[in-house]
């Protein structure tokens, strides 16, 4: 028996909207730790890791570890039927091939339930090593989204270079080139506008723009994004959800031949 109650359906809606275009089907794993997902995109270049911690839920009952295969597009369709301030309850009986999403309005005068078919998904779990990254950048999530979108219109790849002074995003395409430098800056009005650099040594890596743009669909989840890079490692683009957990995207860098 599984029963998870979350007061803000809006959060789960944002989570689904941020990954449904990158990953088609995925297993949601439910354990004492929380409600989690690890999935690769169809070309196995990017990986999504989601954790919604059990203590972030209003009610969390998971009698034993279970894995539920879901089509993320269909799950997003069902969640779109909830209002952001509805309470959502995810329910599944042992051995059942369906999951139920129950939505309750804040005044309790509207209660809806949506039953969705589960699917068998043969997915590989990858072991993500704990790594010390050479460069970590924390910056405004919306600024990062803007940069990826802008550079994506000019070139297919983005070079991200971190130095002590700041982070540089560059691209090159048929029509020309573009460079954006975000200097480290903590003297800001709003905390989320700060650009913070933690760097052991300078790092410069090349990534496919379209994946970076896809990751920024998670922008509504957090004010800041954390970008971690090391040579010979996938980049990590992380959106932390206050008290609830995180959404992490991993992307393999492009390698010069």
């Amino acid at each position: 028996m599984l029963e998870l109650r979350l007061t803000q359906a809006g959060l789960l809606k944002k989570v689904l909207e941020s990954i449904k275009d990158l990953v088609t089907d995925a297993n949601f794993d439910c354990s004492a730790t929380g409600f989690s997902l690890q999935a690769m995109d169809s070309s196995h270049v990017a990986l999504v890791a989601l954790l919604l911690r059990s203590d972030g839920f209003e009610h969390y009952r998971c009698d034993h570890n279970i894995s539920m295969g879901m089509n993320l597009g269909n799950m997003a369709k069902m969640l779109r039927c909830a209002s952001d301030d509805d309470t959502v309850t995810i329910k599944a009986d042992d051995g059942s091939d369906t999951v139920t999403f129950m939505f309750e309005s804040p005044s309790q005068d509207k209660i809806s339930d949506y039953e969705m078919k589960l699917m068998d998904i043969d997915s590989e779990h990858l072991g993500i090593p704990e790594a010390e990254y050479q460069a970590i950048v924390r910056m405004s999530a919306s600024e990062f989204a803007r940069i990826c979108k802008d550079l994506g219109t000019i070139g297919d790849t983005v070079i991200i270079s971190v130095t002590k002074e700041g982070v540089q995003f560059s691209t090159k395409g048929d029509i020309g080139t573009a460079n954006i430098i975000c200097r480290k800056n903590t003297a800001v009005d709003k905390k989320e506008e700060a650009t913070v650099i933690e760097m052991a040594e300078p790092v410069s890596l090349t990534f496919a723009s379209r994946y970076l743009i896809a990751f920024t669909k998670a922008t509504p989840l957090a004010g800041q994004v954390t970008i971690s890079m090391s040579y010979d490692m996938p980049i990590v683009v992380e959106y932390k959800m206050e008290t609830m957990g995180y959404m992490r995207f991993y992307l393999a860098p492009k390698i010069e031949e």
């Binding site: 690769m40 070309s43 196995h44 270049v45 990017a46 990986l47 590989e124 779990h125 990858l126 072991g127 993500i128 090593p129 790849t157 090349t206 496919a208 010979d232 490692m233 996938p234 991993y250 992307l251 393999a252 860098p253 492009k254 390698i255 010069e256 031949e257």
Partner: peptide, 14 residues
């Protein structure tokens, strides 16, 4: 030119 490796070439399967 540059090539795009997969994520599985960095992280091992469990």
């Amino acid at each position: 030119g540059s090539k795009q490796p997969t994520i599985t070439s960095f992280f091992s399967k469990l």
